[in-house]
Structure formats: C-alpha cells, structure tokens
C-alpha cells in the first residue's frame, strides 16, 4: 500500500511548516489545516488509523490519549465527509515514517478542525441556466 493510500486521488496537498493546504482539483474546494490539524492530516494521509494517529498526537502534544482519541476521531470523520480521504488505514504505517517537523518549542494543543473554503455542493453540478448547441456543447441561455 502506498504512503498516501487514504488520499482521494483528486486531492493534492502540500505542507509548509505547520500549515497544510489540501485542494480537490475536481471540485475546486480547498481546505487549510494548521497546528494539531496539520499534524493529524499528515498522519492520516500516511495511512495511520484513528487510534494510531491519536496516540501520536497525544505523545507529541503531551495530552491525555482519551481526549486526543475523541478529537482525532471527529477530525477524521470530517475528512471523510469532505471526501478528502477514503478507504482503509495502512497497518504498516508508523508515526516515525511520517516525519513530522521538529517543533521549535513546546506545542500548544487545540482540537483539530477542518477549515473549508468552498461549498462542494454548489460546485458539483452544471448551472441549470445553460442550454445545448448543435454540437452538444453547453451554451449560456438566451436572455
């Protein structure tokens, strides 16, 4: 299984320090994750399951694993609902293989959240005002 086995193939993403931008190139929806959410994203797309990601987050941020497990689980559910990740986790993935950036100092913990900058539903289907020309291509409807 590849290192990004859970990533929707239409999604491209990049991490810059503690910020991740993920874009669904098919729909134009884009998402930003920072801090805990960025770390969580990196762990999950690398294939870690909810428990594995939660344990890694708990250790990195020095928080109770039960709290981390609840927050990470909700975050992963949001990622799945947004269509960013799919499929099963990779049993062979480890936090060490992800290589999270080394922090400059103590890390502050906040529950990870998904920041979305587009409404997927609005982008998925053709605007119904269009008509079709002789060759079958959509054209703007006459006023």
């Amino acid at each position: 299984m590849s290192a990004e086995s859970r990533l929707n193939p239409w999604v491209t993403h990049e991490r810059l320090d503690d910020e991740v931008i993920a874009i669904n190139l098919e729909t134009g929806a884009y998402f930003a994750f920072s801090g805990v959410a960025a770390d969580c994203w990196s762990l999950v797309v690398a294939g870690l399951d909810r428990a594995g990601a939660a344990a890694a987050i708990a250790e990195r941020y020095g928080v109770d694993v039960e709290r981390s497990r609840s927050d990470v689980s909700q975050f992963v559910t949001q990622l799945e609902a947004a269509g960013l990740i799919m499929g099963e986790a990779d049993a062979g993935a480890t936090p060490e293989s992800v290589g999270l950036p080394t922090p400059n100092g103590p890390l502050a913990y906040t529950a990870p959240v998904v920041d979305s900058f587009e409404d997927l539903e609005d982008l998925l289907l053709l605007d119904p005002i269009h008509e079709v020309d002789e060759a079958g291509w959509p054209v703007a409807a006459a006023e």
């Binding site: 134009g28 609005d122 982008l123 289907l125 053709l126 269009h130 079709v132 060759a135 079958g136 959509p138």
Partner: peptide, 20 residues
C-alpha cells in the same frame, strides 16, 4: 463546428471543467 461533445451535460462543472 467543433466535434460533438462526448459527455453529458451533467459531466460539466460550472468552472468549465469536465468531471473526471
């Protein structure tokens, strides 16, 4: 004219792309 479109209307996204 261009050749006929080989996709249905529902494959067109509002940004001009064709789904998939």
């Amino acid at each position: 004219e261009p050749p006929p479109a080989p996709f249905s209307l529902t494959e067109f996204l509002p940004n001009g792309a064709v789904r998939g």
